[in-house]
Design a protein around this nucleic acid. Structure first.
Lengths: 346, 346
DNA sequence: AATTAGCACTCTCGCATCGAGAGTGCTAAA
DNA sequence: TTTAGCACTCTCGATGCGAGAGTGCTAATT
């Protein structure tokens, strides 16, 4: 088990990680005692280091170089050693300030959140828009725009709005459209997707088509990763020295750019619904080759059971976990409040 | 003037550029004659090269290395030497095929277009959504979503749709909202923004607020760079050898990531309204430090005077201009057709 | 007058060598 | 159990050197 470490060994591990995070250089026994004014000698540190190396918490790039944390080392650190840190109050105020001067547009909120997160964590950020977990039909509008083009605006529970353009087979007047919309609104208000599908279908062909589209959209909206994806700060990861090898940097950025990869990552990461819960993925966890040198800090936000989204940060494995985790946690809280606000008095 | 080049010198310049684009290596006189089986000697090529170097079309990284094109060299090449190329028919078919299997959602069209463009050009692509140049009010919907939150859906000419969330001071019923929307729709249909502002204002406070918002949105929508920005293929630029220096890559990607920079670029680039016209910006043109090693190929698309957008590609200066330009031109044509379709029978 | 062969010269790049520095592991003493 | 001492290892930067590629110049050729 993990409790076989002495207190001093834990301290050494923590300091090595801390130093390496700062300097990005392998850290040796002598420089460690000097730097942190330890009251035991470098030889002692060396002995502890061999133990830690045998346990696969540390690694040496080559004989006679300093030690570097392994993935396991980081994991142990995050789990046991790090302790809970919280964002300093002034930082919190700064974030809140930046945040609340946006308008009321959800889209802008998300952009801003991504930007703030990326800036604070000095890493790439990603956020999925909040989306309802149980979708209920609220309102439908059909608006004729040009020719046979019709705009369908579908409002679902949780404030989610889908809009989509349709091309009808033949021109229809706005009045006809309004009539269809009205009928559907009366019949379906408050129904979940299954209930709508079970509804006795009316004979009107247009109405039937529209209903089909509505249920399709509702189903699409129920998937885990739905809605828009917001990213920011991609260039931050280029600044890190571990990405001197461009191939690394490309792989990491590709993950953020290609949606299927990202959805895979988000969906395969079982996220607790616990709003304070922040997940830390270190070094791809053996599953994602693209993340070999990276870590991801993820959190779910929103109102559990009603509407949730995901937000996270991607950075180098050598990442200030304490700070990053508390930033992510704090932002998740902020966004949860926002969702809460949107849902009040439903 | 530029006609002081002999035919052979033009040929040499063209070949040097062509070779450099392929190999990314400085090209020397001997390898040039060998590679392209020229019927004059390397010494002759050398003589031409000194001329071209004096004219600032070529440059040598250091004495006794091969020649490399300068920005001026590329410009001359694009302007005079390149000749009009067109995309091969099979490629066109492929693109069209990929393209037309998207749905009818404008948002998805744009995403897809960015993706196709990035893939074809093997570079970073960017597209701005089409937006009307003369905005006319068409339709307004007000939908109560949650609590005092109201969704405003504003349909403008050209099929542009704005949606925005409002927080009202106090709760209003859906019926009241519909009534207000109906009144506004009747009064404002077909009016431009100025006409609406000149309208005698009704006494209803809510209606007045909404009208204010409507005109604000219409004004926002009229700006040159408006609406959503679509990007793709950012990682392609990392693959190019010139970005071995990470600082370069970062600067270039920053330009694409930070909206203000990008808007500056797009707005300061005077784009001809000519739909076939493709603009080529080589090496930042002395204005954009971020683009020192890059070139940008831009085109306007859409229906001039009605609704237009911009699309473009960012890649290394060492870029296959012929292919890229024809790809951009072709995509601009496709998107123009799309806009055309949306506008038919307005 | 334009082109070409020949040649000396220059500069980069890859490779090997070498010494300094940092760090380790081991052993013996405290 | 901790620590001092020491021999050993390995990287890294500097230095030197030779091969290769390319240039510029001059003189001969067409």
């Amino acid at each position: 088990m993990e409790t076989e470490l002495t207190e001093r060994q834990k301290l050494v591990l923590a300091l090595v990680i801390r130093d390496y995070i700062e300097t990005a250089q392998p850290v040796g026994s002598v420089s460690l005692v000097e730097r942190y004014k330890l009251d035991f000698s470098s030889a002692t540190v060396r002995n502890d280091m061999v133990t830690l190396t045998e346990l696969d918490y540390l690694r040496q790039p080559h004989t006679s170089a300093g030690r570097v944390p392994t993935e396991e080392g980081y994991r142990y650190f995050v789990r046991q050693l790090m302790g809970h840190t919280d964002l300093p109050a002034p930082t919190k105020r700064t974030i809140i300030h930046q945040f609340y001067q946006a308008g009321v547009d959800v889209d802008r909120w998300m952009h801003l959140a991504a930007s703030v997160l990326a800036h604070q964590a000095q890493a790439a950020s990603l956020i999925t828009a909040p989306h309802p977990e149980r979708v209920v039909f609220k309102h439908l509008e059909l608006i004729r725009t040009h020719g046979r083009q019709v705009l369908m605006v579908l409002v679902l529970s949780g404030g989610e709005v889908n809009q989509q353009m349709l091309s009808l087979a033949e021109p229809v007047s706005q009045d006809q459209l309004s009539a269809v919309a009205q009928r559907i609104n009366q019949n379906c208000a408050g129904l979940a997707v299954t209930a709508i599908e079970g509804l006795k279908q009316p004979s009107d062909a247009l109405e039937q088509d529209i209903l089909k589209l509505v249920t399709t959209e509702m189903q699409r909206s129920i998937r885990v990763v739905a809605g828009e994806l917001y990213r920011d700060g991609l260039t931050h990861v280029l600044a890190e020295p571990e990405f001197g090898e461009r191939a690394f940097a490309r792989r990491a950025l590709r993950l953020l750019e290609e949606r299927p990869l990202l959805e895979d990552l988000l969906s395969r990461t079982v996220l607790t619904d616990d709003p304070g819960g922040v997940q830390v993925l270190i070094g791809g966890e053996g599953t994602w080759e693209e993340l070999r040198e990276c870590s991801v800090v993820l959190a779910r936000y929103g109102a559990p059971g009603l509407a949730t989204g995901t937000l996270g940060v991607l950075g180098p494995m050598r990442m200030p976990y304490g700070r990053t985790i508390s930033t992510v946690r704090f932002m998740a809280g902020l966004l949860s409040d926002l969702v809460e606000d949107m849902l009040t008095e439903d």
